[in-house]
Design a binder for these strands. Structure first.
Length: 402
RNA sequence: AGAGGAGUGGCAGAGUGGUCGAAUGCACCGGUCUUGAAAACCGGCGUACCGAGAGGUACCGGGGGUUCGAAUCCCUCCUCCUCUGCCA
């Protein structure tokens, strides 16, 4: 359906809502008045008069019942339509026809000069015994790899490193549940798109999270914040689960795209006037993190076509992975402005003026498997794989040999 | 999982069928007093929707029901506490 048509429909429904609610309010008002009268008469012992008025109420009751059923139907329809409405892109976002139209804002770092016999990471992980996909296929299915030995330690080390860097930047660490209910999925915008990315547990009606954004942001569902609550900076490590139904063939080899992967996520809740400054802060945090791993990277601003359903603006960070000669997306940093807050009923009570919706933001800091792939590919030598110096304290080794 | 108890405003806590959106206390905001602060006193102090406003409507864990009228009675679901069972 055309966007304008959708909006017209929503506005029409809202007008109907007002109309019906007005009529219902009026009916309820009359009913309340009569009930009060009956109460007063009963107490003063005028039973017969009370009885008379009682008879009058049946018509009002009937009318109220019809109206409230109508109102419920309208509200349900309205809610459904509103839940299906995506966010409005920020004015900086280019319209765009495809991901080709994402704007490249900068590129930093030297592309690796690899030896002639260099390999993509899916060969390296086999050669060095770091990740076992066959075992994943056996135990679970495609896209659920086993990390082993130094591979497992790399995952754990990266997660710890990312968390420590976040904590040093003032984020509070949170370990959330990785199953969430339907209300949470609706609030951050993963639902109602049921055919989308989440695994669903039908027996308990819970969903496996596709990102820690869902539980972390939902902490603030149905919340009224005050000045003293800010800043709100959370960081959480979770496994993430994505169905990626119908993944379009590309980029699916090795660690590039998985059904289960590890990610450290940062989430901030901000006052509306601060959210773009917070976005800059989060971008900087992610950039510093990638730079510290000595990986070449670039930043893009997503165009409207590539922008997610819920974001007002998104910046993607990609690292260059020399073995496969590809840029891999390792972080998305987004400002949702008040879109999620509206669904969350997350408001901010300013000193003056009316309560307003807060702004929500999040970003990956970082996604583990693609970072791992880039580290392996870019640092390979004929003798083994070098470990970036910042990770060495987390791993207890500085080189991977056969 | 079984048995019992409980869920009321930011917090504590009254209220078991009628003017209860809800006493009271604390917290918070404004004022009086004070050189200033504290104390005391006075006033204010929930959210959402409709309305230009006056005002109206809804909300006492969620949903449904009984009744002219429900925080209060009934059903159901959820959550928490206690005991029993099970379990990392």
């Amino acid at each position: 359906m055309e966007p304008e048509q959708r909006l017209t429909e929503i506005i029409g429904l809202d007008n109907r809502r007002k109309e019906v609610q007005g009529a219902l309010d009026e009916t309820l008002n009359r009913s309340n008045q009569l009930s009060k009268k009956i109460g007063a008469l009963m107490q003063s012992g005028h039973r017969e008069e009370a009885q008379k008025i009682k008879l009058e109420t049946s018509e009002i009751k009937e009318r109220g019942k019809i109206l409230s059923e109508q109102l419920q139907d309208i509200e349900k329809a309205l809610k459904e339509k509103l839940y299906e409405l995506p966010n409005i892109p920020n004015e900086k976002v280019a319209a765009g026809q495809s991901e080709e139209d994402n704007e490249l804002l900068f590129q930093k770092g030297e592309l690796p000069q690899l030896e002639a016999d260099h390999q993509p990471h899916w060969e390296l992980i086999k050669d060095y015994g770091l990740v076992d996909f066959n075992l994943g296929n056996k135990i679970t299915g495609a896209g659920f790899p086993f990390y082993k030995a130094q591979g497992a330690r790399l995952v754990r080390g990266l997660v710890n490193y990312f968390l420590d860097k976040g904590i040093a930047s003032g984020y509070q660490e949170v370990q959330p549940p990785i199953l969430v209910n339907e209300a949470s999925g609706l609030a951050t915008g993963q639902l109602p798109d049921k055919e989308g990315q989440m695994y669903h547990l039908s027996d308990t009606n819970l969903y496996l999270i596709p990102t820690a954004e869902v539980p972390l942001t939902n902490i603030y569902r149905d919340t009224l914040l005050v000045e003293a609550d800010f800043p709100i900076k959370m960081i959480g490590y979770t496994p993430c689960f994505r169905r990626e139904a119908g993944s379009w063939g590309a980029d699916v080899r090795g660690l590039n795209r998985l059904h289960q992967f590890d990610k450290v996520e940062v989430v901030q809740i901000a006052k509306p006037e601060d959210s773009y400054a917070v976005l800059e802060e989060m971008k900087q945090h992610v950039e510093d993190l990638i730079a510290s791993l000595e990986l070449p990277y670039r930043m893009l601003r997503l165009c409207g076509k590539d922008l997610g359903f819920t974001a007002a603006i998104t910046y993607d960070f990609e690292v260059y992975s020399g073995g496969q000669k590809k840029w891999l997306e390792v972080s998305s940093v987004s400002n949702f402005e008040n879109y999620q807050a509206n669904r969350l009923k997350l408001r901010y009570k300013a000193q003056e003026g009316e309560n307003q919706l807060a702004h929500t933001l999040n970003g990956s800091a970082l996604a583990v498997p693609r970072i791992l792939a880039a580290i392996l590919e870019n640092n390979q030598t004929s003798k083994g794989i070098k470990i970036p110096s910042v990770l060495q304290p987390y791993l207890g080794f500085d080189f991977i040999e056969k």
